[in-house]
């Protein structure tokens, strides 16, 4: 199975991706994660403005066959959520890195970025899981 993992993103071992732009981070789930879940039918995301610590659950992703959790990759404040996913959760399946992004946050601790995985490290984790 070939999955797409863009080089310009950071990753977590729990299968989130992170795009860092200045002080904000955009977060979603990886192509591998959406494929493991299968057809996504319902997504619950946190409230805008919520302050969340790293590794805390920021939402639930329900597919036809399973439920997955979105874990916050960087501590910070939620500044935007992708509200189109409320009615069109399947976008995460078709475009996990594009219109299927889940939330944007203002991270508060730059050092945490060092703990995120490079694309090479993440690919190794996916290979090990298979």
């Amino acid at each position: 199975m070939d999955y797409e993992f863009p080089d310009n993103l950071k990753y977590t071992k729990t299968h989130e991706w992170v795009r860092i732009e200045d002080k904000t981070a955009t977060v979603g789930i990886t192509d591998y994660a959406q494929h493991q879940l299968g057809d996504i039918v319902y997504i619950e995301l946190p409230e805008k403005g919520a302050n969340l610590e790293r590794q805390k659950s920021a939402g639930e992703i329900e597919s036809v066959k399973a439920v997955g959790e979105l874990l916050i990759p960087l501590s910070g404040k939620i500044i935007e959520i992708n509200s189109t996913l409320v009615d069109n959760p399947e976008v995460v399946n078709s475009s996990p890195y594009g219109s299927g992004w889940m939330l944007k946050l203002e991270y508060k601790n730059e050092l945490e970025i060092n703990d995120l995985l490079s694309v090479e490290d993440y690919k190794r984790i996916v290979e090990e899981e298979n």
Binding site: G38, V64, K65
Partner: peptide, 9 residues
């Protein structure tokens, strides 16, 4: 196989 392609499809 749980699914060949997509359960919904």
């Amino acid at each position: 196989p749980v699914q060949y392609d997509s359960i919904i499809k």
